[in-house]
Amino acid sequence: MSNSVTVVISAAGLGTRLGLNRPKALVSVAGRPLLEWQLEMTRAIDRIVVVVGFRAQEVVSLVRGIRPDALICLNHEFATTGTAASVARGAETASDWVLSLDGDLLVDPTDLYELIASPSSCLGLVPVVSTAPVYATVDDGVVTGLSQDEETPWEWSGLVKLRRTEAAALGRGHVFEGMKPSLPMAYRGIHCVEVDEVEDLARAKAWIESTPRMREYAG
């Protein structure tokens, strides 16, 4: 199946900036853990890989209760490597395409599925909101640059569809650095919220409550 997509969720991180002493994946937003939102939203996808590391057993137990058919990939170097290491590990046994979803990102399901259906590698972009964004330079309908220095109106959200080979070659640091060889790349504007700091929790709750498609998955 040349078009089949594996969703790879990077849930290995510590979430230290949230200061809640638990993996970010297990932090509750609007009444349920982040990872639970992501797993409920991706039920229509056959192949799910969840990359775990920090407090792996707790995250595994959560996954077992929702998607026991998910493949768990263990990134033991979660404390010393960037997200790219998680995505690359998760992509090793994937199908032809990988949809890489950061563990701290809630995406509008409409946008998620449209990105999954994209015929080529594709970045999910948002108008700049973060304090330390990965700016995306857009030129003639494609993304030609990704950088933390060159200010542009768009930032990369943390959601991207890549070929398995591109995902497996991302390296061990930042995903945006690892993606540079794949540029120029197509993009879609998406709606999402990133849960990084404590202040984001209330913002995420408000976003969920005001996003109709999210309410569908509220259970």
């Binding site: 595994v60 077992r64 026991p68 058919d69 493949l71 768990i72 990939c73 263990l74 590990r89 046994t93």
Partner: peptide
């Protein structure tokens, strides 16, 4: 569930037979 000592060294963990077989094939 597997004991902690196994979780500490494994590369993958499976909870479903179909997933295990599919992963082995890849």
């Amino acid at each position: 569930d597997v004991p902690p000592v196994v979780l500490e060294v494994a590369d993958y963990l499976v909870m479903d037979e179909g997933t295990l077989c599919r992963t082995l094939s890849r």
